[in-house]
Design a protein around this nucleic acid. Structure first.
Lengths: 198, 198
DNA sequence: AAGTTACTTGACCGGTCGGTAAAATGTCAA
DNA sequence: TTGACATTTTACCGACCGGTCAAGTAACTT
């Protein structure tokens, strides 16, 4: 672990990688601390609970994904439908990076936690619901712009279609994680575009 | 718990409902036994481990889903594309039933466990990979029949499209579970059919 | 130098985890 | 009636869980 960072930063980094790859329940506070190079007693100086650390980690991960995927994919300089293609291609790149770093396909941290904690950690569930809504909103805006530019015919339900795009992404990530093969995402951008045509 | 059944059957029934709704790690052997109305010591007379019970439960659940969804949906007496519609409508019915019974949308037991245990229970991971492959095969056969009957134009990649259908289903189930709203599945059969058109 | 604060440490808490062992009880056939 | 076998019960195991606490140390202000 990079020791030049503060303990708090190292804890967050450890939570991001460990919980993303192995899930919430399987990673204990002790292991998070060992990985971050601190003693367990220090943990609660920075975070009041394991849940709080997870929420903070989710927030940081969303920030990173915005930076690495959303910003380059949903650039206004790119034609709308090409943005969706880019989004899926960048998701592929991210899964490849994750596998190179950890040896296993990580999938979507939000999707992973949504299913693992959906019926038992209400606060985390709510946060993920919000994150999903934000992704859907991005897709929806892109679809509406595609209609405005004539790239898509009017009359499609942009909200429902945007939700379907997120669903398809999450499902593909699930299959990729299950097979431990990031290349399941290869070429899925064209499959995603099928969802946009009536 | 219905006491007329054998202890083993009650254990299996408890595992199906508890693990499906709350996940693998959150349901302990003690709770499984209490729910089944037996003492913990008896557990290991019927199953060598919690993992073994889970595998047996997965097997039974697949059997039930075949009976309640696959058989009626993929009936040879129904036009191919209508089978896919039926499949998604029946999935909606099942999620509604699950919510009525437990108070929360259960989602897909295979998808749930695939994400929770994907990187830590290799045997369960493998079983789920096989189940996914079987679902995809059903979709693929249906798509090929749709091409044969002229309901779909030739030239689409039936394997990739079948995989996309499974991905879309799993993603929609994830969103429904996250929002605890089974009606997220309402009307998704038409969205699924978009994936089948080139 | 003194005081204040941020951080770190190790020892400890009750509770639960999956799993084991042995004795007690029920069941059925010879 | 006896013996064999399946089932159930109770008590127990070491390990780990998330979390607490009080004391110690480093760092920064004044």
């Amino acid at each position: 672990m990079a020791i030049e960072n503060t303990s708090r930063e190292r804890l967050l980094a450890s939570a991001k990688i460990l919980i993303h790859s192995r899930g919430y329940a399987d990673v204990g506070v002790q292991e998070l601390c060992s990985h971050a190079g601190i003693k367990k007693g220090s943990f609660y100086h920075f975070f009041p609970s394991k849940q709080a650390l997870t929420l903070a980690a989710l927030d940081e991960m969303m920030g990173e994904i915005k930076q690495r995927v959303f910003v380059p994919a949903f650039s206004k300089e790119v034609p709308p439908l090409e943005r969706i293609r880019r989004f899926f291609r960048l998701s592929h790149v991210m899964q490849c990076d994750g596998k190179l770093e950890t040896g296993c396909v990580l999938g979507c941290s939000f999707g992973n936690l949504a299913l693992e904690l959906g019926t038992r950690e209400e606060e985390i569930r709510t946060v993920i619901e919000g994150l999903f809504a934000m992704v859907i909103a991005n897709f929806r805006d892109t679809l509406e712009e595609a209609i405005a530019t004539g790239d898509l015919p009017p009359g499609i339900d942009t909200d429902a279609t945007a939700q379907a795009l997120l669903a398809f992404l999450e499902g593909i990530l699930m299959i990729a994680k299950n097979r431990n093969d990031p290349d399941v995402l290869l070429g899925q951008e064209e499959m995603a575009l099928r969802l946009c045509r009536v």
